[in-house]
Design a protein around this nucleic acid. Sequence first.
DNA 1: TTCATGATTGAC
DNA 2: TCAATCATGAAA
Length: 167
Amino acid sequence: MIVETEAYLGVEDRAAHTFGGRRTPRNESMYRDGGTAYVYAIYGLHFCLNVVAGAPDHPVAALVRALRPVEGLELMRAHRGVQRDTDLCSGPGKLCAAFGIDRALDGVDLVAGDSLWVETGPGGPDVAVGPRVGVDYAGEWAARPLRFAVRGDPNVSRPRPPGWAPG
DNA sequence: TTCATGATTGAC
DNA sequence: TCAATCATGAAA
């Protein structure tokens, strides 16, 4: 269950890979239709998964930052090498490792349900909003409230956004 | 072909 | 707080 996301807003967003209209082999899937997966490698060590959310040639996407593991916990533990449930998918790189997601899944249709897909869930209004993580270089865009996390969920990555703690 | 850097993580 | 580690993209 997706419990944390960040929005990356097209060509104007200085923190986005598509800033300024850049179109490269890496970010090509960002320019595809909504429902497409955008998977990229980062820091030479990890992968991050995005759900493309715009119309074709309008490159906006949601970075999936954390999940609450529901099924396949044993396989996730094997992939991650950790035991605690909240260490399995509590970060964008972690959840890709847990699921075995890499660039081979870049561009797949997340609606069709072939290999990797997203299903609708309960959702709800109990969401904390805050600035995105690791984008300090993005000027005023670094402060924009584009990070969304389920309040009180222990799988939300650190640092927790303001208002995450219930109460 | 070279060089700088990052939508991170984990250890100290 | 800091190093690991390399795909990616821009410059040369």
